[in-house]
Design a protein around this nucleic acid. Structure first.
Lengths: 243, 243, 243, 243
DNA sequence: GATGAATGAGAATTCATTCAT
DNA sequence: GATGAATGAATTCTCATTCAT
């Protein structure tokens, strides 16, 4: 989960403890969900007494908040870095979507916990904080959509919220489906398809990116597909939503 | 929630009790989630003793299963009725999507509970049953997508699963967004936009009539068909899910 | 504590359980105070599972309320019976005060718990209920004081509240003193003295009651007192307030 | 609470810390009671680390002891000053009672905590110390009562302990009643009434002059003196308590 | 003297489930 | 079929106290 930071030597004992707790909690929340994960378990994993958990985070919900903040902070950083790579708006979208799919793939269970409790917690603070974090994330994509519309690469008659919901919703369903059914999907391909959907059909010129290139069909293509069909006789099941 | 059926007079006492429990449970699950809803309050709402609940459903999970079955049964019936209205594939899609949005709008919290517990329950029976129900739902849309591709109304390069994930995912995000933020959206408009996205911009010519020929059969045609087969085989067993 | 009722055969299981819990709780509250008594302990004493306690009383505070109600109910009944004995207002006062001293002597620790938590609980319901019970008790004495004033047996220039506070306060301090210091006092004598104080000095005639009779002093009296002085070289400690 | 003394400039750091802790603790004990006040909040209020509290007082009980000592020390000083004003025994009583009412009015919650824990603590040291402090207080009043009896201003047939219990008990009930019911009482009036009760109605003649002789010595006189001795011996060690 | 981080033994409460009637 | 009373394991949270720095 949250990586065991290669800590620059300066860190108080308290900081180390907090870190260990956040990491242990992220793991437990991910694998068992918030409600089924117990504070006892988490403390034990972190190698501290249960009371220490409450010393640092005040409550189980406070701990979740801590995990969320830690998670979204690095997520935003990564996203910022990925988004900083130049290119046309379309290239940036394709790049970010691909990144998003891979990123969410790693942590969708945890993000699902965030979504569930960030939105429906009894603690209003939690709800507010979660909304903020979420906004920081969606902004990245919302901005690009606006750019694309301005440039004419996306039909301007589609409201941004539909595009955004389609993007995040599709990603979520896709990833959950993969994880709960065991069916493997090539995330690169999937993200290309998803972008294709959002961007609409290729404008006259051939801007198509490599994976989706539609050159003349050869026997190789057919053979590859037959292979996949043969494999497909085995797989099984359905997906849901991350955040 | 599940409507208090104007019951045809004949019903055993047991049936009436079961019904009351299912209705009460649906309400509680919806408003408090599965875990926070207690068997005690459900029994009280239903006007029976707590023991009676276990007499009929064996366990809380069993009760959830009962609620799910009752829910999906009517959902499938409604969907079947809506889908039976004729029209072009596109008209059927637009109609069903609109219906879906309105329908899910009413019960998204409950469906969210189903999705959560149907997929991640410890009870394997629960998982299997949920998958079946889900498949019954997705089939309606999957079929239409195939038709639309066949007809050329949807670009055949987009795999069905992407369309399906985009549809269900977008619907879910849209509805949750409405409910948690209080922001009102016109569901009619939203469903039109969503269909516009899925269908892509209207093609220039009259390719939309249902049985247009596309010239001599080439490898491209075969390849396209293999695409459909591939999609069908992979997704008929493990389809995407609308929760 | 609360007497193990010689139950008339009709009593549901629940009633028996409630009774056992109330009795066990009264004991524990009395000997350890409300805060230090644990629900686990009480349940064990009552021979039921800890959960059962909460089934019947909802919370530890609810249990205290149950104990209080049970206690004050019998107290009021006893008081009503004692008060029903006729006689002059003075005779009734002397009788009731004597009864009160004996009664509180038995349960002052418990009554102290009631006073503490009945007045300072966070639960407003508790406070209201306690105030009501208390009023029911004080009314008995307040009424008599009014009668005595009307009759001229008590100086009418003393407000009733002073008399009442002096009575209850003195009783409380007296009893606590006895219990915490181990010093024995004759409750009959003490109640006579207390009444003497409240009533003021004897009117001309010799209404003095038997224990306080001041006949001619004999050597026996002096000898008895010397005995007590000799013993007194050993005793120790101080008192507090019941309710 | 305990006043922030305008300290004579010389005070070690330790003394200042102790003082801050005692003041903070007095406040917390008063408003939340001993058990509900936590060492954490007290330390925070005092502006020191929690560990520091234990450094100075060893335990929470030790802290209470510290507060008690500080409190009773000033109380005794104040009382001594008030008592030093001359006048007849009766005037001194009236003055002291009035002072007592006003004084207790300010701090009855805290004194209640002292009474509760000073008497029922598990720590035997606490009990002993509390008893000593208490004795120092009661002596002031006990002495006056003896004087008044000697002078004939109080009927000598009432044992001192009854007077003392009535005084302290009435004061306590009166003050608690005021605070918990919100009912305002004029403390000046109340103290007059209370003294009137204790002193009884003014005797007809001039028996109140300080050294009135009462004729030839008889057994009655000896007996009365034995009463006083008896009382003194029994109550000088274990006196009644003003809490 | 002082700190702040850590501790761990409780405590109250919850709730799905069982079972005698 | 139905009930209501009982259960007891599990869980979160509190707080006085300790101790290395």
């Amino acid at each position: 989960m949250l990586s065991a930071s290669a800590s620059p030597p300066k860190q108080t004992r308290g900081e180390r403890t907090r870190g260990a707790l956040v990491r242990a909690a992220a793991n437990r929340f991910q694998e068992r969900g918030f409600d089924k994960a117990t504070t006892g378990e988490i403390a034990r994993d972190a190698g501290v007494a249960e009371g220490t958990l409450f010393l640092h985070f005040g409550s189980k919900t406070g701990l979740l908040l801590g995990v969320m903040e830690s998670f979204y902070q690095s997520l935003v950083e990564e996203l910022a870095e990925e988004a900083s790579r130049g290119g046309t708006a379309e290239a940036r979208l394709r790049h970010l979507v691909h990144f998003w799919l891979r990123r969410v793939h790693r942590d969708w269970r945890l993000m699902r916990v965030f979504g569930q409790h960030g939105r429906f917690s009894d603690d209003p603070d939690m709800i507010v904080r979660f909304a903020e974090m979420n906004r920081r994330i969606t902004r990245f994509f919302g901005g690009i959509f606006e750019d694309l519309k301005a440039v004419g690469a996306i039909r301007s008659d589609l409201p941004t919220y539909v595009l955004r919901d389609a993007l995040f919703g599709a990603a979520e369903h896709l990833l959950i489906g993969m994880d709960t059914t065991g069916r493997e999907r090539d995330l690169g391909e999937a993200s290309e398809h998803l972008c294709d959907l959002l961007l609409g059909p290729a404008p006259p010129s051939a801007l198509r990116s490599s994976t989706t290139k539609r050159g003349p069909v050869g026997l190789e293509d057919i053979d590859a597909k037959l292979d996949r069909i043969l494999e497909a006789v085995v797989s099984d099941d359905p997906p849901d939503d991350p955040t």
